[in-house]
């Protein structure tokens, strides 16, 4: 009786013309990752956000999405890389970014607005601007990370983005080795996203009952496409992390 290995070789040889290596597992590509600057999240993602792919950071208001994205950009800009923040809701706060360690000179900020000039106009117009801006930035190349901030956009509007658009972004991000981070209240990119992080507020940290000096956030890995083959026990899919206020960090320093 032939052994299993010999049988497998025989079948593969027979099917070689139609299906090369039909029964041999495809070697998995281990993706390059970029650290987020939050050790708990890096541990959850096996190193950080994947380079050349779409990562989605989702959650409601005050769930730590922006803090996590700024921490990621801080790591990128401090490594002499250039990043972009496409702000569909014009909600970006440069002071918070600077406090997080983002080198603002290396950050291109695109503030979308409605044609009338009012930032809080029709959401689809601003969303359209943001998508066009992402297209241009991805085509230009050279940006290590681009954040598409749809954090204040209602999920109904975000879900209207065609899947073809996300597919195009995924291809362009892969070609230009750019981390495209999408902030939103829900996941929009579906199968085009390499990683989906679901954030949730946990608890505030106070000092003396009168000062808010930090937050704890909960983060859960909703989806991860390029996970390397794991041996042994799996890591927990959720974790918590904390963000402190800027003045608190200065005092500690």
């Amino acid at each position: 009786m032939p052994s299993a290995a010999a049988l497998r070789i025989e079948i593969e040889r027979a099917l070689d013309r139609r299906f090369p290596a039909a029964l041999t597992p495809v070697p998995r590509t281990i993706r390059e990752t970029a650290t987020t600057g939050v050790p708990e999240v890096d541990a959850l993602l096996d190193g950080g956000l994947p380079v050349g792919a779409i990562s989605e950071v989702t959650g409601p208001q005050s769930s730590g999405r922006t803090g996590l994205a700024l921490s990621f950009l801080a790591q990128q800009t401090q490594d002499e890389r250039v990043c972009a923040w496409v702000d569909a809701g014009d909600a970006f706060d440069p002071e918070s970014a600077a406090a997080s360690g983002v080198i603002l000179r290396q950050l291109l900020w695109v503030r979308c607005q409605s044609p009338g000039g009012l930032a809080k106009g029709k959401p689809w117009t601003r969303l359209d601007q943001a998508l066009r801006a992402i297209d241009l930035l991805l085509q230009a190349g050279g940006f290590a990370a681009i954040v598409l901030d749809l954090g204040d956009m209602a999920p109904d509007h975000g879900c209207q983005i065609p899947l073809a658009t996300w597919f195009r972004f995924r291809q362009a991000a892969d070609r230009t080795r750019c981390c495209l981070v999408v902030l939103g209240q829900a996941a929009y990119a579906q199968s085009s996203a390499a990683v989906v992080l679901e954030c949730a507020p946990c608890k505030p940290h106070t000092a003396g009952g009168t000062v808010l000096n930090g937050f704890s956030f909960e983060v859960r890995r909703g989806r991860q496409r390029f996970t390397p083959a794991m041996q042994g026990t799996r890591k927990p899919p959720a974790s918590t992390w904390s963000a402190t206020s800027a003045w608190e960090a200065e005092e500690r320093a």
Binding site: V38, G67, A74, S96, A99, W241, A243, T244, A246
Partner: peptide, 12 residues
């Protein structure tokens, strides 16, 4: 950077 910070999202 020494760690993540509390970030604000502005209403404009």
């Amino acid at each position: 950077a020494s760690g993540p910070r509390m970030a604000l999202r502005r209403m404009r």
